[in-house]
Nucleic acid binder design. Structure first.
Lengths: 130, 130
DNA sequence: CACACTATGTGCAATTTGTCAATAGTCAAC
DNA sequence: GTTGACTATTGACAAATTGCACATAGTGTG
């Protein structure tokens, strides 16, 4: 059974993947330059769900505004229209390291939360309804 | 050093990959009924950062709309104006269990990401700038 | 040329989040 | 008795985020 239909909107769940988008793109670009369309595919094989192309392209353009990546047009080796090839900048590399620190902290938070949950339900296995 | 000033936004802590507010409130209410103001304080002692009161109260009202909690006014044992005491419903209890499953999945994602990162930087310790 | 696939982009509505300010009761001190 | 500090909740609106529908355009195949 799924909590939809009980008023569960699945927020935070469908949205969760989006929160990983920027760090995931930075990490993929740490492997080497790439263009949006392949990044889109690699993201999915990354364990996160599917992404709307628009969202990915937009994220890349915003990351370029921030100076985390730079892009150049590639009109050559393409099986379609020209494509924009993104490359990580030193700043982007730095930002990726900060993201990693942040995810470490997040991991601790998730673990603390889950531990608190399991410990509590262990001590209070049945909840009496008043 | 913090990446502010490099275009990194980091307002509050909103860009964190995981949002804990709702599951944390559900877990706190699993301990027993409580009103917003104390939940606000307990959230902070929970290891998560500080929360804006408005955000917490709003979350509680929305959770009530969803039927995860119910509230009643308490005009008695108060050191101030009447307060709204929230209590977890059976549905809220169920939703908490789904949140826990979701956080387990999130934990796996964070761990996979971090592992991919560390593995990659280990194999490519220095990035040459072209 | 019609069609599938590659590749990127615009624009806008809907939702979510942040913030500022308002209201209001209790208590203690002055 | 009123000023100020703390308790407690809410409203309204701006700003940011996200989803989605659609637009554009090149390449290769039958």
């Amino acid at each position: 059974m799924h909590p939809r239909g009980h008023g569960w909107r699945w927020r935070g769940c469908s949205r969760r993947a989006v929160r990983f988008l920027e760090p995931a793109l930075l990490l993929l670009l740490h492997h080497g330059p790439a263009h949006g369309y392949t990044l889109l595919e690699r993201l999915e094989s990354f364990g996160l769900g599917e992404f709307d192309p628009t969202v990915v392209y937009r994220a890349l353009r915003e990351m370029e505004e921030q100076g985390w990546v730079v892009s150049a047009w590639d009109r050559e080796q393409t099986q379609g229209p020209p494509r924009r090839v993104y490359r990580l900048t030193p700043l982007g590399d730095e930002v990726l390291r900060f993201w990693v620190q942040d995810l470490e902290e997040t991991r601790r938070m998730v673990e603390d939360f889950l531990q608190a949950y399991y410990q509590h339900v262990e001590e209070h296995p049945m909840e009496e309804e008043p």
